[in-house]
Design a binder for these strands. Sequence first.
DNA 1: GACAAAACTTGTCATTGACAAGATTGGATG
DNA 2: CATCCAATCTTGTCAATGACAAGTTTTGTC
Lengths: 195, 195
Amino acid sequence: MTKAEKERYHHGNLRAVLVRIGRELLETETKPSLRAVARHAQVSHGAPIHHFPTWAHLLAACAADGFRELSADLACAAQHSTNAEKTLIEMCLAYLEFAKRHPVVFRLMFNNNAITERTEEFLQQSSAAYSCLQDAVRALDPDMSDARFDTLINTVWAMLHGLSILELEDQVCRTATPNLKTQDFLVHGIGQLVR
Amino acid sequence: MTKAEKERYHHGNLRAVLVRIGRELLETETKPSLRAVARHAQVSHGAPIHHFPTWAHLLAACAADGFRELSADLACAAQHSTNAEKTLIEMCLAYLEFAKRHPVVFRLMFNNNAITERTEEFLQQSSAAYSCLQDAVRALDPDMSDARFDTLINTVWAMLHGLSILELEDQVCRTATPNLKTQDFLVHGIGQLVR
DNA sequence: GACAAAACTTGTCATTGACAAGATTGGATG
DNA sequence: CATCCAATCTTGTCAATGACAAGTTTTGTC
């Protein structure tokens, strides 16, 4: 049986479809809801409950899916670099790009006001993404002390995430002419931290 | 007429009370709502509408109130320092403390997923708070170039805000023993940026 | 081929945000 | 001081939502 387009009672793929549509509606609609997701998926309003007991669980799944995609982007950005510092910079730029490409889901992923259900899947995917960044920082100097590592990972991630939010909320300060790019601030800031 | 406890038809102070209760419910309840705020304020469910046309407007007012308080905290932190760098550090620590003290409102203030109504009051209070930080950065060297200023303000704010979020979401990495404090990371990071 | 579990539908309920119409109050004006 | 108007508040209503329950269809397993 092809899982493709058969109009059958058992959707067979509903969970993944709900997450995909959920992410779409989050980005495009002002008032996404479980029922709206169900309508777009062409199923009844009660169908999603078997995959997501509450709306919060679907949100957590959308966020987890975002982390999955982010991890992939980070891994992809890392694979073409020669030295460790360039790798880290590339990953940071990929992170920033992800934020700009999926603003709503990005905000959701890191907002514990919205993520009220910290699903197993959510925790797993979120820490997997963190691991990518941690590995890249550790690679700067495999022999660094624990204290140095803590300092680096926390300051780098803070800089990276903070600047992504600034960019997202359109609050990057630009008084100089010609304007400096957000990427410039990011590369400069990370560069200062890792030295 | 004392505006204090008179049980009267015209509340007289309702707008401020709604914001206060709104902020309280945001921090304590899992499912705050316009009607719940009205109940706690002992007014009918229709009363808030004359002060806040929609729930989003009340959220914006709560966020604006948060920015107001943040500005006060920043100003207070700044007034007892001698040199510009120490002043900036003190303000950063106050910012972090504010985030820890009001986690939900803090997340709200900087989350444009939730703030769908960018009220005049909200924009005003938010940029007022930014101004505090900008002034402190400018004071590091009143003669710095625009490019230098842009770089500093954006990296400092990114570090500060990013680390506050890390702390809030309990994702500060601590592998070293004894554990380093979040404040240590912050002071160290800011120190590296301003030199 | 039967049967149990999973997936989906339909129906229902309390709650919510938003709106409308009416009641009450305070203050400005004469 | 009397009047009147606008602001404030109440009550009632409606569609939409999340959550749940009960019933129906399908899948897969023995």
